[in-house]
Nucleic acid binder design. Structure first.
Length: 371
DNA sequence: TCTGGGGTCCTAGGACCC
DNA sequence: TCTGGGGTCCTAGGACCC
């Protein structure tokens, strides 16, 4: 429930602020425990992961034994309780772990089983006993749309032809719904998931009407995004802003650059341009800045990039060239100006492997950007 | 109808290229 | 300059996850 509502109906309640760095440290310790069982770990969130234990039985015993020992160790070593679901597929494991959790009730939580193992022969009846809302990928919207078709349970869903589902929910979701309802789930446990985007967003205490203030907020967020990108050793090409107005309507704007960027100043510049489309008079409740199209710094182009564009800052083209000195850089800029005349502003965006690495290592405090 | 700060993936339309 | 098909990339928004 919204905090404001909770405060209203329960004025004496104690409200704690989240402490994400603490959660991260526990997450790391949790992963260490998992790693002692199997290297095939796919973290889903700070407090949740899929483990492929198919190769671990020789040393650690049956799936049930592994589950019980994991639960015990998490309790003993971290002081946290958890539930473990076991199944042949991600779908079954996920539903089982949920079913093993304690349930809330008016007289307090009813303890769950903690561990639930679903045998392959019981899979289908277990899945079909659920409401559609329990399926991954079915949120409030899809639940409602399915409801209007008279479908509330997975059993009902299993009766619907694939083509009907695709027609109603699009290709990807239609096929997924059809397959999950039949217990088909081939999604593997994916170990290394490189981040696709890094962002920072803030909800303001009061709606912000001043576009200048929004810009300085965006700059601060750009710094945090750039710092995290550097730590993650990656660069990106698409800067996006997200705005929630006071009336809860959301707007996103994005811009993709020709060359990968990492510097806070560049992210902030683009965010600033995107912010010009935002109507501050409507009152902004939330602002976010993100960088996506991420790729590892090592895979970024290994040379300086000269970008030239029109006055309104949209990049018209790019020419990549290795530049070893400032003189050489200026020569190249001149050459571009000669060739492209007044259209070549020749702004320099030198986000390169070397520059990014230098920043990572702290040897280059600032990379100049000049006309 | 979202509290909050992260994210992911999908889709549709348009621009652009060959 | 047009035709047409095929493809990629970008942008915006929506739904979903924890």
């Amino acid at each position: 429930m919204p905090t404001a509502h909770a405060r209203q109906i329960c004025p004496k309640a104690v409200f704690l602020s989240p402490n994400f760095s603490l959660y991260h440290s526990f997450h790391d310790r949790l992963i260490e425990i998992f790693e002692s069982i199997t290297p095939l770990i796919e973290p889903v969130a700070l407090d949740e992961a899929f483990l492929d234990v198919s190769g671990a039985h020789g040393v650690w015993g049956s799936s049930r034994e592994i589950a019980l020992s994991l639960r015990r160790r998490v309790k003993d070593e971290l002081g946290l309780s958890c539930s473990v679901g076991v199944g042949r597929t991600k779908l079954v494991a996920k539903l089982a772990s949920k079913a093993a959790k304690p349930l809330p009730s008016v007289d307090g939580p009813h303890s769950g089983t903690g561990v639930l193992v679903i045998e392959t022969k019981d899979e289908l009846s277990f899945i079909r006993g659920h409401l559609v809302r329990a399926l991954p990928g079915v949120g409030p919207r899809t639940e409602e749309r399915l409801g209007r078709l008279g479908i509330t349970r997975v059993v009902d869903l299993a009766q619907i032809p694939r083509s009907t589902l695709v027609a109603h929910f699009g290709r990807a979701q239609g096929h997924l719904l059809c397959e999950l309802a039949s217990g088909l789930d081939e999604r593997p446990v994916v170990v290394e998931r490189a981040a696709r985007s890094i962002g920072h967003e803030e909800t303001f205490d009061a709606d912000e009407f001043d576009s200048g203030a929004l810009l300085s907020r965006a700059k601060a967020m750009a710094v945090s995004v750039a710092t995290r990108c550097r730590e993650a050793r990656c660069v990106g090409r698409t800067v996006a802003i997200k705005v929630r107005y006071g009336d809860f309507s959301n707007v996103t704007r994005s811009k993709t650059t020709g060359a990968p960027i990492t510097m806070a100043a560049e992210i902030a510049d683009i965010a600033g341009v995107l912010l010009e489309e935002i109507d501050a008079d409507r009152g902004v409740r939330l602002l976010g800045v993100s960088l996506s199209g991420l790729l590892p710094t090592e895979e970024a182009p290994a040379h300086q990039l000269l970008l030239f564009g029109s006055e309104e800052s949209s990049v018209r083209g790019s020419r990549s060239t290795e530049v070893k000195s400032r003189e050489e850089l200026e020569e190249t800029a001149d050459e571009i100006r000669r060739r492209f005349g007044k259209h070549a502003i020749g702004s320099l965006a030198n986000i390169t492997r070397d520059a990014a690495r230098a920043k990572t290592e702290g040897t280059l405090a600032r990379v100049d950007k000049e006309p």
